[in-house]
Amino acid sequence: MHDIRVEVGFDILQANEALAEKNRALLDDFGVTAFNIMGAIGSGKTTLIELAADRLGDRHGIGAIAGDIVADIDAERFKRHNVPTVPLNTGKECHLDAHLVEHALERLPLDDLDILFIENVGNLICPTDYSLGEHHRVVIVSVSEGDDIVEKHPMIFKTCSLAIVNKVDIAKAVNADADKMVDDVLRINPRIKALKTSKTTGEGVDDWIKFIEGNMNVHR
């Protein structure tokens, strides 16, 4: 019996990155642009995806991956908007990773899709570290989470290209300053685009749709 030392050099996050690159290449082959939609529980991720599906469904093929502890509920919602959806039940896991998404992609009709929404698990922390193979990362927070939610979770805003402050119609009722939240976003990441939205009043929804269409990859 003796001791040996073996150099390994295996990075867990790098392995995820490599798999994410593979997913991205597959999506590129099919001309699909993927959006990783992140945000806290109840921030409005599902609703904003539904709005996009309704507004864009007549001119683009839209699919979804619904990630959640119990994903079937959101998946049913998307299907009611004629969006082919794969539910990804993560069980106890707090984020999606590239490996889970790889298998979900096998079950989607990529040939028919132009846009893929990947709704991540409701969480502002863990999804930050994991690429899925998406082309754009979007973070959604709502005013009901408190107007200090952005400054409390800076890292996720560093990694996204769009931040949405949602449910701004109820800001007063929950004593939150939506403009402060936007300012916080821009201070943390000067390169990010920030929007205020509300499903109830329709504020910002056009800009959300414009962001999606403006960031689609060139088509086949």
């Binding site: 001791d3 073996v6 150099e7 050099g9 990075d11």
Partner: peptide, 8 residues
């Protein structure tokens, strides 16, 4: 998050 080396 890199497993650099292992002694066994």
């Amino acid at each position: 998050i890199n497993v650099r080396d292992i002694k066994m």
